[in-house]
Amino acid sequence: MLLKDDISTLCIDIDLRALKMRKEFSATVLGLTGYPPLLAHILKGGEYGPLLRGPDVNRHRDEWRALMKELAACAPTSSEVADQFHTQWHVGHHHIRALVDDDELLMDMLWKWLPRYNGPALLLYRGENFNRFELGKIGTAWSDKESVARMFAGGLNAEGKGGVILETIAPADAIIAGPSAHSIYLGEYEYTVDRRRLSTINLKSHFPPRQS
């Protein structure tokens, strides 16, 4: 026969086990079991502006660099998580790049976390900022549509000394991933490229600085 205190203890134990099971179930559905907590910020499409503009940006940068190192050593456990990461990378990669501020680390991570491209070499274009181009800091987002590169070179990336359209023939082993469904929906057809594996990058056009 169970006493009153025994029943209370049993109920608490059942509640705790149920809570633990719900947490484990949610983590399993999201493919987050064993992954760093900050990963959820990416997969859920979290905001990066407050982190970049806030007074603790250096602390956040250290945390996000640590995350990138962990992800570079730990591939996603399912194609669903890889696809979700792929979509959110296309949505917020420019913010993540600014927050991490380490392109080498980002590219190492992307080889593990994006769905691997499987196709031929491609003629690709990128709308880049001229200042970053001069420093050799060329981003990972390229398109097979020159019009898309023109849009970014004359718009978002036309700061400082202006923007440029870059052109390359990317070998298959330099293309990390093809366009996500989201990128195709936007008409950007974004290929993620490891610039370290490109032999030649040509500057095709230069755009004046964007007016504030």
Rank of each mutant, 00 (worst) to 15 (best):
L52I: 15
D83T: 12
R59G: 10
L99H: 03
K4S: 05
R61Q: 13
N202Q: 03
W89A: 01
L32F: 02
V100W: 09
K69Y: 00
I14W: 05
F152A: 01
F25M: 12
R150P: 00
P36T: 09
S212I: 13
V193W: 00
M151A: 04
V164F: 01
T168I: 06
V148K: 02
S199K: 11
S183E: 08
K69G: 07
L105D: 05
F130S: 09
S205G: 00
R116N: 09
P171S: 12
E190A: 01
A174W: 08
G31W: 03
L106I: 15
S205R: 13
P50E: 01
R22F: 08
R197D: 05
L39Y: 02
F85K: 11
K161I: 03
H60P: 15
A141T: 05
V100C: 00
G178L: 02
D62I: 08
Y48T: 11
H93N: 06
S199Y: 06
G34A: 04
V29T: 04
G187V: 15
S8A: 15
L186E: 07
A82G: 03
L10Q: 09
L124F: 01
D6G: 15
L203Y: 04
L38N: 05
D62N: 10
G139N: 03
H94P: 15
F25Y: 08
I12R: 14
G127N: 10
L19T: 15
N118P: 09
A170I: 10
R197L: 04
P171F: 09
W113D: 00
H41P: 12
Y125L: 05
L106H: 06
I176P: 00
C74A: 07
T140Q: 01
R195N: 01
A153K: 10
L135V: 14
L186I: 13
R97H: 04
P36L: 05
A40L: 06
F152N: 01
K112I: 12
R59V: 10
P37I: 03
L110F: 14
F25V: 15
N202D: 11
M151D: 00
